[in-house]
Design a protein around this nucleic acid. Structure first.
Lengths: 195, 195, 195, 195
DNA sequence: GATGAATGAGAATTCATTCAT
DNA sequence: CATGAATGAATTCTCATTCAT
């Protein structure tokens, strides 16, 4: 269905910007040139639409992070992780922000999914870092908080992009910003983990 | 007035969690045990209250960051900056989050203040880092993005605290988390900037 | 058509319980496992369905009351009338209640049919009672109101059945209740009419 | 508050005629010349208003039935009961009908109150009849169902009044009808209970 | 200061109904 | 026959705000 996806994307955009309560079904439908009731034909309620948006973003996010398994060295793995996460922030800033908003609200509607799907990925990453540390490939540090910092930083290039751009005197972040961010973050982590 | 401040703090808490549209004057007043008309006596409108909250948070934030000037070495300065920002995230998580939300929405109501009051501080910090780099005290890197990363990370310990806590299996972040974060971030930045 | 009747019966059940406005085409269709559009294929509108239900109930009611003509004594006639009406209340409680609801609403959609088809039957009954009174077979009393009372009482064993059952501590009225009602009502009327 | 009562009475009238779902807050408010929101200022929701109506009717009904205690003979008691119940049907037909509608729907919102407040009164009445029977003052019969019949009949003079009037060719039931009903019902019961 | 009363604006849903396929 | 798609009309309810006291 073309239409369902269009609704999903527009809803994502508005939820990201205005939050669940700040967005209206009317506003989303209007932007798409359809009637409010027609939108409700596809998604039975605002909340259902919201959850569908989260589901959709999460699925894409998981897909985009999955390609990372087949990497040899810690350096490559870390560089790839940062690149993938930043790319997602760049290509899907709204999706990223909807998640941040949900988390900031205490994840009232998405806590279970967060625990079921996001937490395991994080735990796997931490365990891999710990294994590498045991093998002497990287220096030991607080890997969980390292992941938090990486998560927060890469996320911010979507969530806080307007502020960053404003401070740079730009309309929006551009490719150079994302390259600089990637370079810096990779540098920071690699230096931190150098044995 | 005791009451004005109480209103401000409760509003801050609710705006942080539910956003501007997700919060209601009624809800804030109810939590304080006063009538919504009485609240409106102190703050003429919801938007006025919201701006007052932002003003209040910003003033406290600026105050808490100002003590940093009189420090000798880059190492001390950076350690202090991270400590101060994390302390603010810990002690004023709601205030921090209200700001993040406002920024995520594109700062519709607070853009000018952001430019007038926050940007200069950031520019000063960046310039100081550049001076130190010229003096050979620290390694040159993209200082602006470094500040972004620091901002994002420290902010996240307020905004994403529920998620971090959830992933740790805790009810809320505790002192150890903030200490770990401070240690890790300082370590990361210092290693990044080591000449 | 099997289906038309199934629709009619399910609609009768829901109209009886929730009223015309309290019932929805969707709800009736769902109970039958068909789509609401399909239901509308058989009955062009909700109102049409409602009238069809009333027509259907009325036809069956008239049929069930018609067998009464060929009875010899007043006693037998009265006993039979009460039995027939109670049996209808028992076997077709929903149909009975749809009628009561319509009447309570002032019969906005069914007044004419009521006058054309129900009133004559009532008048016939009253006239027969008056004839018997003239012949000295029964005591004279207000026969019209007697019929009202009989109508109301027998009807109530459908309409108010949930309340009666509740007061008896039962889930629903059972055979004994209907037998008791029949016995009592017959007794009451016969004693009332004994010359 | 004059206004609260006015709302209650108008709501009673409309709920009686159109049912809970068939009535609209807008319609009730319009009839009173106030805004929909103003009505909601007094009663927080449609359901709350509905329950308030039922509470109000029940209180008045209980009050109107309470005067019956101080009566000497069964004959007087029965006559008084019928008179009181019919008077209530006459003076408060809407209140009576709201109750009937609620019961017909299976008492989804008022079952508990029905059990707590109405059932005891009925049980008391039945017990009193049984005591009189033991004392030989009245003939024994099924007193519970006798009460049901009385309830149904007297109730019908409110609920089915439009139909009765229609059958009599009147606009509405008048004093004579209620007198006839009272006379007939009393007669019926007394004859039924004559030892 | 504080609150009862009132309202305009808007938002989410529900629902009957139509139309094309 | 049956249903996916779409919409107009209501309807409940929430909420910020105003005003009088």
């Amino acid at each position: 269905m073309r239409k369902q996806e269009a609704i999903l994307l527009e809803a994502e955009r508005q939820f990201a910007r205005f939050g669940l309560e700040g967005s209206s079904i009317e506003g989303i439908a209007a932007q798409l040139g359809i009637s409010r009731q027609n939108l409700l034909y596809y998604y039975a309620s605002k909340e259902a639409l919201y959850v569908a948006v989260l589901d959709n973003v999460l699925a894409d996010w998981i897909a985009s992070m999955e390609e990372l398994g087949s990497v040899d060295t810690p350096e490559q793995a870390i560089a790839q992780y940062i690149r993938a996460k930043l790319r997602f922030s760049r290509e899907r800033p709204s999706g990223t922000s909807v998640f941040t908003r949900e988390v900031m609200a205490g994840a009232p509607l998405y806590r279970d999914t967060l625990v079921a799907k996001v937490m395991p990925a994080l735990k796997t990453d931490v365990k891999r870092l710990e294994r590498w540390a045991r093998e002497g490939l990287i220096r030991r540090t607080n890997f969980l908080h390292l992941m938090f910092v990486l998560w927060a930083s890469t996320q911010a290039y979507a969530d806080l992009a307007p502020q960053f751009a404003l401070f740079e005197g730009k309309e929006a972040l551009d490719e150079q910003d994302f390259e600089a961010a990637e370079k810096l973050l990779t540098e920071m982590v690699l230096r931190t983990l150098k044995p």
